[in-house]
Design a protein around this nucleic acid. Structure first.
Length: 298
DNA sequence: GATACGTGGGT
DNA sequence: TACCCAAGTAT
């Protein structure tokens, strides 16, 4: 089978499979730029199952760019509860504010302009262009990267991954193709345990049934490994979420709440953590009588 | 290019 | 229990 035939067979098989088996995900039923953007930001490093739980309520609370732009940041951060990477909530609201101010509340459709917006990188810019504005452009996420590496191992090694993704994009079918690749990657062609038996592309895939299950490493890691700051950042934001709008908490008390074993030498560490959260727009620090009071941003 | 950045479920 | 992982982005 020559290259062209193989490619068209792959295209046909995957699109046919997707048409029949695609999950009915809510962001596939809309082309609304706001709704697509919210879904794509939520899906950054986050499983579909988790986004499905949070997406509808977020849209109910903030149905469009205007409502998100004018909302209290504290409420946006609260609505992000359970999603992780809380920076995304702040940046998403920043996008809303920027386009309300600078672009008449319209999300740009140009990929390079999209990519200048906070929290929108190369993947998300292309995803919005394709899934909302139906542009014929490729997306490369962890699923697409993995599938192309398995399906086209030689080209994947020698070619830039974005060029490769563009080169296999079927004419006028970018939306379905991109969705299908990600659907396959997150359901069958998974990283650790690909289910090649059921894969619609198994007869075209040189990696089919070749994926070695990675040996579990038994190396003991340091039992008392250092806990990364993001764990404490998460605890802080989680605690602040539970407080009412006008409430705040004194920083020493907050430290005790999120790190009870903390000693005096943790003071400097803690102030750095708080400064970081403040810089990220995730908390507000109000100083009064030589004490610092912490809350979510107003 | 390495590192930081959450969260909850799976094994 | 301890570790891995998941539709990335910013520095």
């Amino acid at each position: 089978m020559n290259i062209g035939n193989r490619k068209s067979s792959i295209t046909k098989s995957l699109l046919h499979w997707y048409k029949q088996k695609a999950r009915p995900l809510p962001w596939r039923k809309t082309r609304n730029p706001y709704r697509i953007l919210v879904s794509e930001v939520m899906l950054q490093q986050t499983q579909v199952s988790r986004v499905l739980q949070k997406y509808p309520e977020f849209l109910r609370l903030f149905p469009n760019f205007s409502s998100l732009a004018h909302a209290r940041t504290a409420d946006v951060i609260r609505a992000w509860s359970g999603m992780g990477y809380n920076n995304r909530a702040v940046r998403l609201q920043q996008v809303a504010k920027e386009i309300m101010n600078d672009n008449n509340g319209r999300l740009p459709s140009d990929i390079h302009i999209l990519q200048k917006l906070p929290g929108i990188g190369r993947y998300t810019a292309h995803a919005v262009a394709c899934f909302s504005f139906e542009q014929q452009t490729a997306v490369v996420d962890t699923n697409v990267r993995r599938i192309l590496a398995r399906l086209f191992p030689n080209r994947a090694r020698s070619m830039d991954e974005w060029e490769l993704a563009e080169s296999v994009l079927p004419k006028r079918k970018a939306y379905e193709w991109n969705q299908a690749l990600m659907e396959l990657g997150s359901t069958f062609c998974t990283a650790a345990h690909p289910r090649c038996v059921d894969c619609p592309l198994k007869q075209y895939c040189p990696s089919a049934f070749q994926i070695r299950k990675p040996k579990k490493s038994y190396k003991r890691k340091n039992h008392r490994a250092m806990i990364p700051n993001r764990i404490y950042r998460g605890r802080i934001v989680a605690l602040l979420r539970t407080m009412s709008r006008r409430q705040s908490i004194e920083s020493n008390r907050l430290l005790h709440m999120i790190r009870p074993e903390a000693r005096g030498q943790n003071q400097k560490w803690f102030s750095l953590v708080l400064t970081g959260l403040q810089r990220d727009g995730l908390i507000q620090i109000h100083s009064q009588k030589a004490k610092n009071f912490i809350s979510l941003p107003k």
